[in-house]
Design a protein around this nucleic acid. Structure first.
Lengths: 227, 227
DNA sequence: CGGTCGGTTGAGTATGCTCAATCCACGTGG
DNA sequence: CCACGTGGATTGAGCATACTCAACCGACCG
């Protein structure tokens, strides 16, 4: 149990015990992976940790983020059910992963990429597809961060989340305003103002606490988006 | 010669001829790939084109970009010598690739990822590493776009470029101000002002035409950067 | 020599940020 | 049951960073 130190304070004892090598499967996907449970706010791994494992979300939401020296934070991505995260090029994690709400994941031993690909070409294909999917998302998000207005950012975000976790246009936001702000390169206040204005404009419905969102005018939202 | 249409106007006839299937190698890296030459400003592929080939830069610079309906542009990345680009998850390119300056690349037939990985595990490893490298860059760039000030963005950019194409701290910027602006989520004017101010502050040296840059105070630049 | 392209510089402005107050839901304890 | 405290969200007022619009400069080229 070495080198989990930077994040260790975030892990409950039961999880730390599971991170021992003996508890991990040798062949990642052929065997089911180890099921781990995290409470809201707990860390899965921290920047600088050894990248011994990668993960697949069973249920719940993960945020992948980096914090600058002065506290500014950027959330690179949110991962929802079935997403794979935590696979790294180097030996350590370059970002931090935390549970946004109650979370269940499967953990797989990463070993070296070469080993992974050689042992299981199918797994290689799945991992490659998942990494390319992450890259596609990151690229789209670059466009959003670099060139979209606050209103366009929120419109894109809502349509994206709706697509990922709702069949109709109604869903519960798993994350709070600060998380949305740090994902979109905005402040909490701007996120709040923009959402309430969209509600006033009849684009969306907002429930009491602000977490439940209903898309009332999909075309209007798509028009408020840029591309 | 189907489906290169959207970008066809950018390609000189010689290149279009080379894009015919007969001219392409069947095994991407074992065989050397087809050498292609592009003049400054020419397109390698456009958003929506079939992703038949991926590429490795021999010399020169490529920009990967997307343009919104109203003309706003985001440059996702610059690729320099030895970088691999153009590998996609789906069947089509989701961004546009253009030559920033005179460019030489090797083109490889992409086929399906599964085929690639099965035929040549070593290649699979190389591609996976390259995709993960792209992802790492994209992630760092997300942090820059979402949370850094103009000065921090320029500082990060200069240090990054210096590391990639100069052993000492002296190099020639391959791209013009507009490209830098669209890469960093700024305007031309802000890029120009920030660079001249950095020169006044003694952090960098700027030559006449503004392309030649010399890093005079690496620590100062690193301090101007955020993380 | 005029024209174009890329870059720089200046003046004024707008978008989104900062700081601050308020609100609301919820949980806890008297 | 109600008072209180807390965390998250909303709203308002003022401000700053980076944008817009515009002029100007210098190099290059036909």
């Amino acid at each position: 149990m070495q080198a989990i130190s930077p994040a260790a304070r975030h892990f409950p004892p039961a999880i730390l015990a599971l991170h021992g090598p003996a508890a991990m499967p040798r062949r990642p996907v052929a065997e089911p992976g180890v099921r781990l449970r995290f409470a809201k706010g707990e860390g899965i791994y921290a920047e600088g940790d050894d990248a011994e494992y990668f993960y697949k979300v069973v249920s719940g939401t993960v945020r992948i983020c980096k914090v600058l020296h002065d506290g500014r934070r950027q959330i690179e991505a949110f991962h929802l059910a079935r997403d794979i995260f935590g696979l790294e090029r180097g030996a350590t994690h370059r970002f931090t992963a935390e549970a946004v709400d109650d979370l269940v994941v499967l953990a797989f031993r990463a070993r070296t990429l070469e080993d992974l690909l050689r042992d299981d070409p199918d797994l290689g294909g799945e991992l490659m597809a998942s990494v390319l999917a992450s890259l596609d998302r990151a690229r789209d998000h670059l466009v959003l961060l670099g060139r979209k207005s606050a209103r366009e950012k929120i419109a894109t975000f809502l349509l994206n989340i709706a697509e990922r976790l709702s069949s109709d246009g109604s869903f519960e936001l798993p994350m709070q305003r600060g998380d949305i702000a740090d994902h979109l390169g905005l402040t909490i206040e701007t996120v709040s103002r923009t959402l309430t204005r969209m509600a006033r404009d009849g684009l969306i419905g907002l429930q009491a606490c602000g977490r439940a969102v209903e898309i009332l005018d999909r075309d209007g939202l798509a028009a408020a988006d840029a591309d």
